[in-house]
Design a protein around this nucleic acid. Structure first.
Lengths: 336, 336
DNA sequence: CTCGCAAATGTGACCGGTCACATCGTCCAG
DNA sequence: CTGGACGATGTGACCGGTCACATTTGCGAG
């Protein structure tokens, strides 16, 4: 591997001049620059990221801390970050934190505390991410992809408008004539600014009952279990599900209990994962721009890294996608 | 940030001794070690990854090169790699390559050519990954998560037994009485050792017709289009789909064309993504151990990095999961 | 013609680890 | 009692970049 000194020797200049060319300093004569560039080309020289990182004291990269890489919302956010980072020539690292256990959270915090981790984006959709955020030393240039709920003490946090998304979805169901809307919540809804709050908002504004929330995990099996419980209650005619996967589990539970969607019960999901348009019934859901969120987080993290002013994030607002899984409640009730 | 020299001063030893403690050298007296450890603790010292990488000439990490991070097979493989790497205290980087365009492939190859990328795992499920693999300089310690098809010239390649998986699925359909099995293929099946080959094997062994393959993209929309074409052909009673998402698109196309699954047409997917058990009909599919594949690739990449002998990968073989989307062909035909 | 200033380029030190080798001390065998 | 071997530790150089500052060169003004 040729180094900057080899290039300098080949081009007949000093290593510092090569460094200037690499960093696009204007203080280099065009002919000199050309000579250096030629030498770089001939030797196949690539600057060492490790050396640069050591010298600069920080790495030109972003590390994403997340509790999961497979679930759609997480994976799509990661995709947005990666795309944006790659466009800027920056490296992307991934660090998964599987539980909110103090030891594991601390380890992750130490890990990203190293300058070579570069900027940090914590995906704080769930309690694990929030725990990491709180354990982060102040000097770490980190931003959060978060719920709007959590005003992370001093940290920049960017969020999709989940509150509005949930309210829109709930109003859609209410407008169809449902007396109230039940809710199966995913682990991420801790905050008051999130889906849970939007659902309550809409229900409250309409003067509708606010039923007890059914919590479930990220796994569809627990969504199925929640669905079976809901299916047993004849008063349930509309269900807002924490995300599209949950909706699928709930739908199947209703089906197995002999309830038709949307004939007997309407359901709405969240996220608009690719398959949702092709299930039967096609799922009514709220599209969330996770990729855009990822991009915005990347820009914010870079700004944080350079101690520049934060750019205004331009996020695509959530949009309700009405498909086949929602309809007016069954006859007897509407007739009332 | 305290450095190794600060720790040395605090402990009253030389920096080299601190280095020895960090690297668990046996040549240090227990009391000295204890003193150093105490100093490390007090100062909150963390060794710099960048400095270590520079000095060692390689980084203790793995970079994953992939064309996608959201699709299940890719995301799950990444998860396996990350889990294994984290357990060993190694960093994980991600580099997405969006197309097989030479410029982009070359950029990615350059990127992982830097020693600070550490070991490399190329997810070569598709032509993009294969292109990256071929563009990689020889000195890069890389392994491939690949189709069994591609005997990557000199590179270690680990693969799930997709050929057998496809053959199992096809035989299952044949055993139900279908005269032949149609196939909707994803972009990844180029190789002769993959799903395509297994399907052909089973069909050939049974003396069944080998219908024309319908190619489609990763997007469900193209699967839907393929499904519509298949639905128009009354001879089609069984379809092997390239993966579970594709199967969902095909299923919906059949549904929209008035065909019942599995009453009129049986379908089988691949991968067993979490939702497949909860769709209606629940999808018969072949479970693939992508997480295990990821773990095996990690181990192989580490071995490659240390120029050690390759461990024997222990992979969980694919397993057919029979659910509701497969049944004997419609009456008239079986009666024949 | 000479001085001064700015542009272009070179030199030394440093970032924080590791390697190779030197040094010091101790214990045991001859 | 002394030489040698070995265990414990220290010293200098190095990895490949960057920064701060020194030096050289070129040009216009006085």
């Amino acid at each position: 591997m040729p180094s900057i000194r080899d290039v300098a020797a080949a081009a007949g200049v000093s290593y510092q001049t090569v460094s200037r060319v690499l960093n696009e300093s204007p203080r280099v004569r065009p002919e000199t620059r050309a000579a250096v560039l030629t030498a770089i080309e001939q030797l196949g020289f690539r600057p060492s990221r490790a050396a640069r990182a050591l010298s600069l004291g920080r790495a030109p990269g972003i590390t994403v801390v997340t509790s999961n890489t497979v679930l759609y919302g997480y994976a799509a956010t990661l995709q947005g970050i990666e795309e944006a980072a790659r466009a800027e020539g920056m490296a992307v690292g991934v660090r998964v934190v599987e539980s909110a256990e103090p030891a594991e959270v601390k380890q992750a915090a130490d890990y990203v505390g190293d300058p070579s981790a570069g900027g940090v984006v914590v995906i704080a959709f769930d309690p694990i991410g929030v725990a990491v955020l709180e354990a982060l030393p102040d000097h770490v240039p980190a931003v959060a992809a978060a719920e709007p709920a959590a005003p992370e003490r001093g940290r920049v946090a960017i969020a999709l408008d989940e509150r509005r998304a949930a309210a829109d979805a709930t109003r859609h169901l209410l407008a169809l004539g449902h007396r109230t809307v039940h809710h199966v919540a995913i682990p991420s809804e801790g905050g008051s600014g999130g889906r849970l709050a939007g659902w309550r908002d809409a229900l409250g504004q309409a003067g509708a009952d606010i039923p007890e929330v059914l919590g479930c995990g990220w796994d569809i099996a627990s969504a199925y279990a929640a669905g079976r419980r809901l299916a047993a209650d004849p008063d349930v005619t509309a269900i807002l599900c924490g995300n599209d996967d949950i909706a699928q589990g709930v739908r199947r539970a209703l089906y197995d209990a002999g309830k038709d969607v949307p004939g007997d019960v309407s359901i709405v999901g969240f996220d608009d994962i690719p398959g949702s348009a092709y299930s039967t019934p096609a799922l009514t859901t709220v599209r969330m721009d996770f990729v855009g969120l990822g991009r915005a987080c990347f820009r914010a993290a870079v700004a944080e890294l350079g101690r520049q002013e934060q750019p205004r994030p331009a996020l695509v607002p959530p949009s309700l996608v009405v498909r086949e899984s929602t309809a007016p409640p069954p006859g007897p009730r509407t007739a009332t």
